[in-house]
Design a binder for these strands. Structure first.
Length: 378
RNA sequence: GCUGCGGUGACGGAGUGGUCAAUCGUAACAGACUGUAAAUCUGUCGCCCGUUGGGGCUACGGAGGUUCGAAUCCUCCCCGCAGCA
């Protein structure tokens, strides 16, 4: 079980400061949630992750079901013990994979639409590689092609075996190019699945329901009201948020007030550094994003001066740390020159040093924002 | 000195008379990435002009030659490797 306490609401915005108590410790919110899909923050050990000021991680049901199988995790004493992470954990339900391995893959689109497109997903359209049925989804394992069925029941059972503190309802994350009718039909399914998740769950883990509805206000409202009225321990806001950052913030400002104010709100899969302040001011308590870890492995370091592409030749002659105002171990001990050398030499330590820094940087930034809420500055 | 093999774009290495500015890989450069199919993917990669289609120029060790046409065939030369003297 979890316990959520709102300590303070900003006078300037909907931002709020809170404490989320879990069986594995407390989280100061708003908090960034690094993504540990396969029960690891890629390139880092759990001990290193602790030093990045991370308070809670999110792992993935679909991926851990395929590998190593939740039974193995359970036999190892559950996720916390398995991955040597004594702090709070979430598991995502696999609902994102319904999108990313389905229409996301077919159309090459992400959660946010960058360019205008004529492509559209209409009611009745079916993704090429997965089958979405009334009770769940048939996936093809990307490992060996095996057919795998995950629905609300399966997802909850897997998540119970994994043993995270907070688990998510199985949903269908919709694409930014889904039309109104597709989104509406999908939403009905997600709502039905949400109830099933509540019915199936036997553990004391906290279960978060997920609000969908795409970019359509009436569907978002309907979803927030419906999911918000179910006895979930918290809420995730998922799916896509229109085609610009402004619509995203507007949509959050519109949606969150429909949810019970005493329960925590998690924003699923959003969090480029420039998005963080805007989403926090809408009242989001926790949010996860692959950006700091994923981009790190592609050479991008986030700094107070903006993104740096550490593969660029210029940095070979730069003896400064990634960010001279950063107090992380990477910045204390290693130069841009060295890190760039490692990238160009294809040394895996490059990925590690930047992953460490990026996580520390994101967490430090959110820490500052918590301070700002305390002082009613945002 | 003889015999054999070979010299291709930054590098490795295809091509062996027209469809070749030359497959592919690497490097280089540029771009993308938001609940991780992702240490990944995409684009450019001889020079010059055109917004595109495209056009011009210079190129496959060097110099000649054969041919309508040569990286590809012939002659001589230079260089490398191997074997034999």
């Amino acid at each position: 079980m979890i316990e959520f306490t709102v300590l303070k609401k900003s006078k300037k915005s909907a931002a709020r400061l809170g404490i989320l108590k879990t069986p594995h410790g407390e989280i100061e919110t708003p908090a960034f949630v690094p993504v540990a899909t396969q029960a690891v923050i890629k390139t880092l050990t759990a001990e290193e992750v602790l030093q990045t000021k991370s308070q809670i991680l999110i792992c993935n049901t679909y991926h851990l079901h395929l590998k190593p199988d939740e039974k193995i995790v359970k036999q190892n004493g559950g996720l916390h013990k398995f991955m040597n992470w004594g702090k709070p954990l979430m598991t995502d339900s696999g609902g994102f994979q319904v999108f990313s391995l389905g229409f996301g893959r077919d159309y090459g689109t992400g959660k946010l639409l960058k360019e205008k497109t004529d492509k559209a997903i209409l009611a009745g359209d079916k993704p090429a590689n997965i089958k979405i049925k009334d009770d769940g989804v048939f996936f093809k394992s990307y490992i060996d092609g095996e057919t795998i069925f995950i629905g609300p029941r399966e997802s909850i059972k897997i998540q119970e075996k994994l043993g995270a503190d907070i688990i998510f309802a199985f949903d269908e994350c919709t694409s930014p190019i889904s039309d109104y009718n597709y989104t509406k039909q999908s939403l009905e399914k997600t709502h039905r699945w949400a109830k099933m998740c509540l019915d199936v769950k036997k553990s004391k883990q906290a279960l978060f329901g997920i609000i969908q509805g795409g970019k359509f206000s009436d569907l978002k409202e309907e979803s927030a009201k419906f999911i918000g009225n179910l006895p979930f321990d918290g809420f995730g806001i998922g799916g896509e948020f229109g085609d610009s950052k402004k619509t995203m913030t507007a949509m959050l400002n519109f949606t969150i007030p429909y949810l019970p104010q005493e329960k925590p709100v998690h924003l699923l899969g959003i969090g480029h550094i420039e998005d963080i302040k805007p989403i926090i001011t809408t009242g989001v308590d926790t949010f996860d994003c692959i950006t700091p870890t994923h981009y790190a492995r592609h050479g991008i370091a986030f700094t107070s001066k903006g993104r740096l592409d550490m593969q660029k030749k210029v940095f070979l002659k730069d003896k400064n740390p990634l960010d001279s105002s950063c107090t992380c171990l990477t910045c204390q001990n290693y130069s841009r020159s060295y890190i760039t050398h490692l990238f160009r030499a294809k040394e895996i330590t490059a990925l590690q040093l930047v992953t460490f820094h990026n996580l520390y940087y994101f967490n430090s930034y959110v820490e500052k924002l918590r301070e700002a809420i305390k002082n009613d500055k945002i």
